[in-house]
């Protein structure tokens, strides 16, 4: 058993007086795929935003690939460069073409030569099947295409871990599949992934473990088969009965 690539210990987070995350303990090993589910407001998005410190935690520790997240901005930027993230609202840069969206960070953060960055970007775009759109602007693409571009953009940084924050929630139903396909593809290549999603089909197919969160706590964490076949906690049972 290898060392965990993400290690969260006794992590607590407050928004003002409101405690969003309570005593989170979680360790994720390399190449594992974790799906996080739970009702809205349960803190699952906040949890994964803490992993690349888009949100600050107040107590406990988060160690990503051997680097502890604290006030040190250098560390944070280094961790962020290793952790890719895909957002619910895509968050592509609307003033840049699809190709430039993908090459911006490799060129300026990783100091990659422009030519190499473009080659890499075209490869990644090909993986998500939008290499023919590379000269268009985000506003000219459909939601599904934009989200696939966002995945490609994150992958261009050649991250060790990918975080997905409800990647399909803002999409029309017919576009969900194309994005999920891209994610399944990525999972098959052995990427370490943490995915916040309501797509239980995806969880069953891909996840090694499923985490159920409610009211800022990890209520249940189990191997995928176990989780769906035999949930232990009552709240998990209730949630699954509503969503399946």
């Amino acid at each position: 058993m290898s060392d965990p690539i993400i290690k969260i210990e006794n992590m607590n987070k407050w928004f003002g007086d409101f405690q969003v995350l309570k005593d989170i303990n979680l360790s994720v090993e390399k190449n594992k795929k974790i799906v996080v589910c739970g009702p809205s407001g349960s803190g699952k998005s906040t949890l994964i935003r803490c992993i690349n410190r888009l949100e600050e935690h107040q107590k406990g520790s988060i160690i990503v690939d051997g680097t502890e997240l604290n006030e040190n901005t250098k560390n944070i930027e280094q961790v962020r460069a290793e952790v890719g993230m895909v957002f619910q609202q895509f968050n592509l840069f609307p003033h840049l073409s699809i190709l430039d969206n993908c090459t911006l960070a490799p060129i300026w953060v990783k100091k990659m030569p422009k030519k190499d960055a473009e080659e890499l970007a075209m490869n990644q775009l090909k993986q998500v099947q939008i290499d023919d759109q590379s000269n268009k602007f985000p506003g000219q693409l459909s939601g599904g295409q934009q989200q696939r571009c966002a995945i490609a953009r994150a992958l261009c940084m050649q991250p060790k871990i990918m975080l997905f924050d409800e990647p399909t929630s803002a999409l029309d139903p017919e576009m969900i599949k194309e994005v999920l396909d891209a994610m399944v593809n990525l999972a098959k290549q052995g990427m370490t992934m943490i995915v916040v999603t309501h797509e239980m089909g995806f969880a069953k197919e891909v996840a090694d473990e499923v985490i159920f969160m409610d009211e800022g706590m990890i209520v249940e964490k189990a191997i995928t088969k176990e989780f769906f076949a035999n949930p232990k906690n009552d709240r998990t049972k209730l949630f699954l009965s509503q969503i399946l």
Binding site: R49, N52, L54, T73, E77, Q78, R80, A81, E82, V83, G84, M85, F87, Q89, F90, N91, L92, F93, P94, H95, L104, A105, W108, V109, K110, A150, R153, A154, M157
Partner: peptide
């Protein structure tokens, strides 16, 4: 500008100046 633009730039490892020069200010 929507907060997502800042999030996206940060999540790609951009620091304050890179984020502002390439993502935030142009928009």
């Amino acid at each position: 500008l929507p907060r997502g633009q800042y999030d996206a730039a940060k999540s790609l490892g951009m620091g304050y100046w890179k984020m502002h020069i390439f993502v935030i200010l142009p928009q």
